[in-house]
Design a protein around this nucleic acid. Structure first.
Lengths: 198, 198
DNA sequence: AGTAGATCGAACTGATCGGTACGGTCCGGC
DNA sequence: GCCGGACCGTACCGATCAGTTCGATCTACT
């Protein structure tokens, strides 16, 4: 029965629903780990609808990754905002938030980094690079407000800690990395405050 | 013409040659980015030979990843050994070696981590986990010899720096991360020497 | 000399993939 | 109340994939 009787036809809502459900499935199974056919049946959507909204599977993937990047950045920003005005507390809040993420059963590492590791396509790589850039801007802002001697440098070092903790949490141990990376980050922060450089 | 006239038949050597060539191709294109047929033509090997040696494509992938892990660990260990007896110098040597790797044109991130991001198969994940474990043992050894208060903790923090630098180098900028992660690592090392913990 | 086995090249199979087409059904705006 | 279009279900297409098979050919060991 095409178009169930009580449903509301709203392309924007349909697109958003596809995006949300596809995000979870592609993250869990990998970009090449699930086909369009299965994707559609799990989403409760016909192939025609999916292709009308996203053109190709790659188009869907890109839309999913963009949306995911937006969500992740907004989530980290909110964690920072909830931590008050102290930059050190803000930094700690970032890693506490990450630790919560690591402990989710469905955690599989950063979806953006995973995607770039799978599809060497320039478009996907560009989205991932931009995502890392947004993370970097956030961390550099904290470093700057903390009065680090070289906020750009400290920001990049913190970014490595964030990504490294995520990799280790995904592939070795999901329980330690958040707190341990947080401790390392605070050490780097205080060192960058005291000394001219490291 | 099957079996060229002047060739020597040596299964072990054939297997090693396949392994080496397949390692580069699978790393460059991704595990799912190249099929067995193309793999064989590029390797100059027939499908029958490949399947006799490795059983399945997954078997080849696992063998490739195991060999790669061995090679990488041995390479890092040799860099450490060449750095003399000072633990701080050894640690610096690790990141200097990484920086050289990042600047290779074919650099695409850690092959093991990339593989685990693509194939959620437990066997691949296990190989990657073991690879990280070997890295961790190496770094913890340095932390221990350096007299860190908690060598296990420092080792895990250093591992995050290594993996984070690799991710950032692969997806954002290949030139900075080595030296910047090195500086961060030395900061963490000296902090762990002075204070009881971080 | 003769045999076992390693290798090639090429054809083949069955499954799956991304993407398209179509007839039919229902909602939303006019 | 009518019509454009959003949507479903299914069938279909060509391409590609992993893996198999086979005859021919050459090496290595005995």
């Amino acid at each position: 029965m095409p178009v169930p009787k009580g449903s509301t036809i709203d392309p924007a809502r349909t697109r958003a629903a596809i995006l949300q459900a596809a995000t979870a499935l592609l993250y869990e199974r990998g970009l090449d780990g699930i086909g369009v056919a299965e994707l559609c049946t799990r989403l409760g959507v016909s192939k025609e609808t999916l292709y009308r909204h996203f053109g190709t599977k790659d188009g869907l993937v890109e839309a999913v990754l963009e949306a995911r990047s937006d969500r992740v950045i907004a989530w980290v920003e909110s964690a920072v905002a909830a931590a008050g005005d102290d930059p050190a507390a803000q930094l700690a809040a970032v890693f506490d938030a990450l630790q919560h993420w690591y402990e989710e059963p469905a955690f599989r590492g950063c979806a953006l980094v995973n995607a770039a590791a799978q599809h060497h396509v320039p478009q996907v790589r560009a989205i991932t690079a931009r995502h890392l850039g947004r993370h970097l801007a956030l961390l550099t802002g904290i470093a700057d407000r903390a009065g680090a001697a070289e906020p750009g440098l400290l920001g990049r070092q913190l970014l490595m800690l964030v990504e490294g903790a995520t990799v280790v949490a995904a592939h070795r141990d999901a329980h330690g990395p958040g707190a341990e990376a947080r401790a390392a980050a605070l050490t780097l922060l205080s060192a960058a405050r005291e000394r001219p450089s490291s």
